[in-house]
């Protein structure tokens, strides 16, 4: 049981993608211009992650080592197409906003990375928990980054105006360069917090 909790929570802070691994930045920086699209892509990634992790873990005994990447990619790609079709059928507006970024979940290193590094060695329950943790962590990171950019950049959150009337926005943050600045800022803050936490832990151990 403690193992399950550990595998779940690691995705939320200790190994939170994309801030810790800095993986899949291409889509991360592209969709975080608004919270809506960030949550949409995050949801898609959660679904694909769960599907690929569970299937890979189920099939881990019978997948021959030499063709495992090919099998993973087939599974992941199927998941992504399901997401694309479902989004087209039920969230057409979101589908139009995200556009090319949905098919690109296939090449999001996070999904293949979890299949290769985790799911193919662990049991189904652990793989599912890992996918949930990582997926929620990914969505959270995207939402935080997107909130920051949307609020500072245009003064809205989920399309709702949150800043006072006089706020003109800061369009630089919405541009790609601003995405890197925001990401860098968040990484810096996370490193500071981690360092503080580690120091406290060491002190506690020494005492």
């Amino acid at each position: 049981m403690s193992r399950i909790v550990e595998e779940f929570t690691k995705g939320l802070w200790k190994e939170i993608p994309p801030f810790r691994f800095v993986l899949g930045l291409c889509s991360v920086l592209a969709v975080t211009t608004s919270v809506e699209s960030a949550v949409g892509l995050g949801g898609g990634v959660v679904f694909v992650l769960i599907m690929s992790n569970v299937l890979v873990s189920l099939l881990r005994k019978i997948i021959p080592d030499k063709v495992r990447i090919a099998v993973f990619i087939v599974i992941i790609a199927s998941g992504v197409i399901i997401v694309e079709l479902a989004m087209q059928a039920y969230f057409y507006g979101l589908f139009q906003v995200l556009g090319i970024w949905i098919p690109l979940i296939v090449v999001n290193c996070l999904v293949l990375g979890r299949a290769e590094a985790f799911a193919r060695k662990e049991s189904v329950v652990l793989a599912l928990v890992d996918a949930l943790g990582m997926g929620i962590g990914f969505t959270m990171s995207l939402t935080v980054l997107a909130s920051l950019r949307e609020i500072i950049g245009v003064g809205t959150w989920f399309g709702i105006s949150v800043m006072p009337e006089w706020y003109l926005g800061f369009p630089y943050i919405i541009k790609p360069a601003g995405a890197f600045v925001c990401l860098g800022g968040i990484l810096a803050i996370m490193n500071v917090v981690s360092a503080r936490l580690d120091a406290k832990k060491r002190e506690a151990e020494a005492a």
């Binding site: 019978i62 997948i63 021959p64 087939v74 199927s78 399901i82 079709l85 059928a89």
Partner: peptide
């Protein structure tokens, strides 16, 4: 190798076909 790859691809392909048929009408409506 051949069998596993073929089976996985086949199952995935079949699954996708089902999903595609299920959603086709809804997508057209959207």
């Amino acid at each position: 190798m051949i069998v596993v790859l073929a089976v996985v691809s086949g199952v995935c392909g079949g699954g996708l076909a089902v999903v595609k048929m299920q959603t086709a009408e809804q997508i057209e409506y959207q």
